[in-house]
Design a protein around this nucleic acid. Structure first.
Length: 511
RNA sequence: CGCGGGGUGGAGCAGUCUGGUAGCUCGCAAGGCUCAUAACCUUGAGGUCCCGGGUUCAAAUCCCGGCCCCGCAACCA
C-alpha cells in the first residue's frame, strides 16, 4: 500500500493557537483525508515544542514549574485540534521521555562520529529574544525587538559541523528540484547556500538555560532548539516502532510556513545526513496570512482563534475560506469581509442552495423517493456527468501540487454547471405536465448524483458537511459515495428533505 | 547594491514555471425563472495585463533595463 507521512511544525508553547497554526494544521488534515480517500495510507503528526528559556521564563511569571506550564499550553493545542476534528495520528511533545532519549541517542551518534565539537562562541546576546545579535543587526546598539542593550557573552558551546554538508545539500537540491517547494523557496535556499555555511551552535550551558534536554556527553550543557525540535519528525515514528519508521519516513512531507524555512531546509537535512538518515521527501512551504490592517487592529477581532471561528462561522466554512483563498506558497489577506463573502457566494448561494433546491423538488414531486434513470440520456445529462468527471480529474492534478484553491475552483465550476442544468432542464416546469413526470424523475436523479459525487470530492475539505450530506442522501457508507454515476440510487431509495447547510451571513460582525 | 513579495476592468484576486482568443468573486446595468438559503440562470458595460526595449509568426506569460507599492513589528504558521 502506498504511504505518506505528513507533519506540521511543533508549535511553541509560548502562545495559544492562532490563525497561522490553524492554517498549517488544516491543510495537513485536508491532505491526510484526501490521501486516505485515494487509498493512500497517510500518517499525520503534530505536537508541541516545549523547551527553552522563553518557556522557563513564562512559567516563572505564572508561578509555575516549566513542565506544568508546558502541560497546560500543550493541552490547549491538543484540545483545540481535537475540537476542530483534526485527524492527527500522533501528538508529540518534546518533553516526552521517548523523544528525550532519542534526541540524546542522535546527539551521541553524531558526537561519536566527530561532527559535534566543543568551541567558543561570543557575541551580543539578548535575553528577551534568546539569541545572539551581530553588530549589524542592532539598532543604536539595542535589540530591535526589545529596545534593550544586549549583553556581551562569551561562552563555550557545542557546534554541529554543518559546513561539512553544504555541498551534499546543494547536490541534493539539484538532484531533486521539488525537494523544497514551491520553487520560490528552493531558490531562496540555493541563494543562501551560495555563501559558505557556518557551523551551528547546538547547546547552551546549563548555568544559563536549564529547561532543555541535557547533552549525553556533557551534563553541564543542554541542547538548544534545533536538535531538540526538528528531530521530533523522526522520534515520533521511531516511537511507533522501526517498521513504522521504515514505512513512512521515506515519504515524509513536512508542512511549514516560510518563517521557519532555514531550519527545515538547511539545518534539518544536514542533521539527517550527519545522523546517517535519508532525507525527507518534500518540504512544503506556505506563506503568511496578512491581517487587514486598520479596521480591526485595535479591536479584539484582530486575533483569529480557531475555536472562535468555529463558533461564529462553523468549522467547515472557516476551513473552506482558508483553503480557497490562499495560493499555497504565497501570502494572502485575511479579512472578515472576504470570509463572509466567500461563505455567502460559494457555500450558501452556490452549493448550499443547490442542495436545497434539489432535495426540495425530490421531496415535493416524489416524496423523497428516487426515480429510475432511463437508458437514453439527453445531451445535457451526459454533459453534466462529464463536467463532474473533469472536475475530479482536475482536482487530482491540483492536489498533487498542493493547489487547494484551484482544486476547489474546479469543483465549483461543476457545481455552477449543476445550477445551470436545473434552469436549462426546468424540472419545475416539466412537472406541470404529468406525461413528463418520468423525465423529471431522471433529471432529479442526475442532480442527486451531482450532490453525491460532490460529497465525496468535498469530504477532505469539508468533513462535517460531507457527513451531513451523506445523511441527507441516506448513503450508508463512504464506499457508496464512490459508486459510479447512475449506479448508486436504486428506485425508491428515500432521500431526506432539505436542510440549510450554510446559512447566509447578512452582515459582517465587526469588533 | 540587505532579503523577500507584489503592480491584471470600480474593489479583491487567479492565470505567469509548461508563450497562442484575458478569467474568477464582489459590485454595476438589462432581462429570465420561480424548484431553492431574496438564492438561481442569461446577456451587457468596464482592462494601455506598471513603463521602455528585446526574443518570437505570437508575450500578462520568456530576456534586459527602469518606476512604484508592501512586509521583515505582533499571537509568529
Amino acid at each position: 500500500m502506498e504511504r505518506i507521512y505528513l507533519t506540521t511544525p511543533l508549535y511553541y508553547v509560548n502562545a495559544e493557537p492562532h490563525l497561522g497554526h490553524t492554517y498549517t494544521t488544516i491543510i495537513a488534515d485536508t491532505l491526510k483525508r484526501y490521501y486516505r480517500q485515494q487509498g493512500i495510507d497517510a500518517f499525520l503528526l503534530t505536537g508541541t515544542d516545549e523547551h527553552g528559556d522563553k518557556i522557563a521564563q513564562a512559567a516563572k511569571a505564572n508561578g509555575m514549574e516549566p513542565k506544568a506550564y508546558a502541560d497546560r499550553i500543550s493541552g490547549v493545542f491538543r484540545a483545540t485540534w481535537d475540537e476542530c476534528g483534526i485527524a492527527y495520528d500522533h501528538f508529540i511533545r518534546t518533553t516526552d521521555e521517548y523523544h528525550r532519549r532519542f534526541v540524546q541517542s542522535v546527539l551521541q551518534k553524531i558526537y561519536d562520529s566527530g561532527d559535534i565539537y566543543f568551541g567558543e562562541y561570543g557575541g551580543f546576546y539578548c535575553y528577551g529574544c534568546e539569541r545572539f545579535y551581530t553588530e549589524k543587526e542592532l539598532v543604536d546598539g539595542k535589540c530591535p525587538d526589545h529596545q534593550k542593550e544586549p549583553s556581551y557573552i562569551s561562552e563555550k558551546n557545542y557546534f554541529f559541523r554543518m559546513s561539512k554538508y553544504q555541498q551534499r545539500l546543494i547536490d541534493a537540491l539539484e538532484a531533486k528540484p521539488d525537494l523544497v517547494r514551491p520553487e520560490r523557496y528552493r531558490s531562496e535556499v540555493l541563494a543562501f547556500l551560495r555563501e559558505p555555511l557556518e557551523d551551528l551552535s547546538i547547546s547552551r550551558p546549563k548555568s544559563r538555560l536549564e529547561w532543555g534536554i541535557p547533552l549525553p556527553f556533557d551534563s553541564d550543557h543542554v541542547t538548544y532548539v534545533w536538535f531538540d525540535a526538528l528531530i521530533n519528525y523522526v522520534s515520533a515514528l521511531k516511537h511507533k516502532g522501526e517498521e513504522t519508521f521504515a514505512a513512512y519516513w521515506p515519504k515524509a512531507n513536512h508542512l511549514i510556513a516560510k518563517d521557519i524555512l532555514k531550519p527545515h531546509a538547511i539545518y534539518w537535512p544536514t542533521m539527517l545526513m550527519a545522523a546517517g538518515l535519508p532525507l525527507y521527501d518534500h518540504l512544503n512551504v506556505h506563506g503568511y496570512w496578512v491581517m487587514d490592517s486598520g479596521k480591526m487592529s485595535k479591536s479584539l477581532g484582530n486575533v483569529v482563534r480557531p475555536l472562535d471561528m468555529k463558533k461564529r462561522y462553523g468549522l467547515d466554512a472557516f476551513r473552506y475560506f482558508l483553503l480557497r483563498e490562499m495560493v499555497f506558497g504565497q501570502d494572502a489577506n485575511f479579512s472578515f469581509e472576504a470570509l463572509v463573502n466567500r461563505i455567502n457566494a460559494d457555500l450558501a448561494n452556490n452549493f448550499g442552495n443547490l442542495v436545497s433546491r434539489v432535495l426540495a423538488m425530490q421531496q415535493r414531486y416524489f416524496s423523497g423517493a428516487v426515480q429510475p434513470l432511463g437508458a437514453d440520456w439527453l445531451k445535457q445529462d451526459a454533459e453534466l456527468k462529464d463536467k463532474f468527471l473533469n472536475a475530479e480529474a482536475e482536482m487530482k492534478q491540483h492536489m498533487a501540487g498542493l493547489q487547494f484553491h484551484r482544486a476547489l475552483e474546479a469543483l465549483w465550476s461543476a457545481i455552477d454547471h449543476a445550477n445551470r442544468y436545473i434552469v436549462q432542464t426546468a424540472p419545475f416546469s416539466l412537472f406541470k405536465d404529468s406525461a413528463q413526470h418520468r423525465r423529471v424523475g431522471e433529471i432529479l436523479h442526475h442532480l442527486l448524483e451531482t450532490i453525491r459525487i460532490s460529497t465525496r470530492l468535498l469530504a477532505p475539505f469539508l468533513p462535517e458537511t460531507a457527513g451531513e450530506l451523506q445523511a441527507l442522501l441516506a448513503v450508508p457508507s463512504e464506499a457508496s459515495l464512490a459508486a459510479p454515476w447512475g449506479k448508486f440510487f436504486a428506485p425508491g431509495h428515500k432521500v431526506l428533505p432539505p436542510k440549510v447547510l450554510f446559512p447566509r451571513i447578512e452582515a459582517a460582525p465587526e469588533e
